[in-house]
């Protein structure tokens, strides 16, 4: 037996290991830097006044209450539409569809949708919802644009969890003489709640971070409205407000405050997605 591997091999192995470690360190370091930098810059800028007032050119006040409300409204409105659409499409694909070609077409369409850049959604949303359906620039138009964007997400997560509902449950229910719809309502849908919830969490994350698709559909206004009134009027979400404050008004303090809020929410959403995933996995394994 030879004593050991050659120097050349040793050098190659060492090189690859160092490159791997550097890459991992860089990736992890980037995240650490981004989170701490944004927090350090943004958290001190957050004040009660900022969170609870609206901006006014007259008094020079800057407040992001309208942007917070707009974000909440747009998330609620988008979820109300996207859940039934996405989950329904998943149920169709998994429970009803017999035609393989049609399934392939629908799945390809969903994949295509998830690859389309948000700026294109924004443009088509503007043409279709704002102009063609005459919704004007409004939160509702923005929300509907986001519905199309998030459709594939909810579709996919629901479909994945539908696949984990054991076939025996369905057979059992059919065997008791239940009709198809009854089986779906009582056995299949309750079994895929986890997928729907995961899809919602992911969608909320995406909506929270979305800006390009909202610029021309939901607009830039900073007015405080109630929910239904708000949906019919234009309004900036937190991300759009961040963009406007940073790029067009040079108000970096506010921008960082919003960035810090977004960062905290992003972290919370990640955590929620992880916990929900773990919770449902545990329940399923029982």
């Amino acid at each position: 037996m030879q004593p050991g591997i050659s120097k050349k091999r040793r050098a190659y192995i060492l090189l690859m290991r160092i490159l791997m470690w550097l890459s991992v360190a860089l990736t992890a370091g980037l995240v650490l830097f981004l989170v701490t930098y944004v927090m350090a810059k943004g958290l001190p800028e957050i004040s009660w006044n900022l969170l609870t007032t609206k901006p006014s050119y007259l008094s020079g006040n800057i407040g992001i209450l309208p942007d917070i409300l707009n974000t909440v409204y747009i998330i609620i409105a988008a979820l109300i539409f996207v859940i039934p659409l996405g989950a329904g499409a998943a149920v169709y694909l998994n429970e009803y569809a017999r035609n393989k070609k049609l399934v392939a077409v629908i799945e390809y369409a969903a994949e295509t949708l998830s690859g389309i850049p948000s700026i294109i959604y924004g443009l088509v949303g503007m043409l279709f919802f704002c102009s063609f359906l005459d919704m004007q620039t409004s939160l509702l138009a923005g929300a509907l644009t986001l519905v199309i964007m998030n459709l594939p997400t909810v579709l996919r997560t629901t479909q994945e969890s539908l696949k984990t509902v054991p076939q025996s449950y369905r057979e059992g229910a059919f065997g008791l003489g239940a009709g198809k719809w009854r089986v779906i309502r009582t056995v299949v849908l309750p079994g895929c709640v986890d997928g729907i919830i995961t899809g919602c969490i992911l969608s909320v994350g995406r909506i929270l971070g979305e800006s390009a698709a909202l610029l021309f559909t939901a607009g830039f206004a900073h007015a405080v409205h109630g929910f239904f009134e708000g949906l019919n009027s234009a309004g900036a979400t937190l991300t759009v407000a961040l963009y406007v404050y940073a790029k067009e008004q040079g108000e970096f303090g506010v921008a960082f405050a919003i960035a810090a809020i977004l960062m905290v929410l992003t972290l919370l959403i990640q955590l929620a997605a992880m916990l929900v995933g773990r919770y449902f996995k545990k329940r399923r394994d029982l």
């Binding site: 990736t27 992890a28 995240v31 944004v38 929270l208 921008a255 960082f256 960035a259 990640q270």
Partner: peptide, 30 residues
């Protein structure tokens, strides 16, 4: 190659990276 703990931590970090809104990247970049 990663030990399980390192893997868990770095994977979580990567998904944080995925969740950060693009305007925040823009802001830090600016």
């Amino acid at each position: 190659a990663a030990p399980p703990k390192v893997k868990a931590v770095v994977s979580a970090a990567v998904s944080v990276l995925a969740g950060i809104p693009s305007v925040v990247y823009g802001l830090v970049g600016m």
